[in-house]
Design a protein around this nucleic acid. Structure first.
Lengths: 111, 111
DNA sequence: TGAATACTTAAGCAGGTACTTGACAATCAA
DNA sequence: TTGATTGTCAAGTACCTGCTTAAGTATTCA
């Protein structure tokens, strides 16, 4: 239960607004305005979403002059991907084992 | 923004209790009691988490007699994995393009 | 039949999330 | 230096989440 980071990453990805921001940012860096403009909400609301993305580590930003530029940090993206992929693989392995067990049982029946 | 399903899947995975349940279920099916026993909360609370997992499609269950047996449904697990993997790939592709651009710029400087 | 098991529902509460508007800083360009 | 641009903070509201306890239902076993 020590994966406090995964909590935040999955929670960040659970919102369509924030996934839209990620979609935009995988194309390359963007300013706060550029991220907020296509969204059906006020700028402060978009800022809150951005703060959640930064808090999760999915996005980093730096301010130069009056412009804050945001970009993807792929580390947490990889970590989330791995968690899901690993669990799916475990499930498949276990399903294979069940298959092997059923095959065994079947052969025993045939004897 | 039509990925209502992804909202629920990521939201389900954002909670450590629910990830613990998934960890248990990738090993094989389990009853409600088996899932709830190791958790530091009441049975009704665990049931609510289970309901969220079922609502997301990550888990299915069926009741036989008085026992409800829960198991992983891998479809949403794959879908979540793909979403993250695709975005990470897009980001990498774009980073490569930036690298190519910088290389080009560098060669032009050298001429 | 009567007790134990395995859930299920309901009511209630504390705290968190997702917005809104309005006010305000800081920077840049004319 | 004035005005537009870009971002930030604060207060307020409505709804959602995660838990609790208490009570109830359905099933199985002795």
């Amino acid at each position: 239960m020590l994966n406090y980071q995964l909590d935040k990453t999955f929670a960040a990805l659970a919102d369509p607004t924030r996934r839209a921001m990620v979609e935009r940012l995988v194309q390359g860096p963007a300013t706060v305005c550029e991220l907020a403009k296509p969204l059906p909400m006020s700028l402060p609301a978009a800022m809150l979403h951005l703060k959640v993305l930064e808090g999760s580590g999915l996005v980093t930003s730096q301010k130069v002059g009056r412009v804050r530029t945001c970009r993807i940090d792929p580390k947490m993206l990889s970590q989330a991907e791995s968690w899901v992929a690993d669990r799916r693989r475990l499930w498949e392995r276990n399903l294979d084992r069940l298959g092997a067990f059923l095959d065994e049982t079947k052969s025993e029946d045939e004897q």
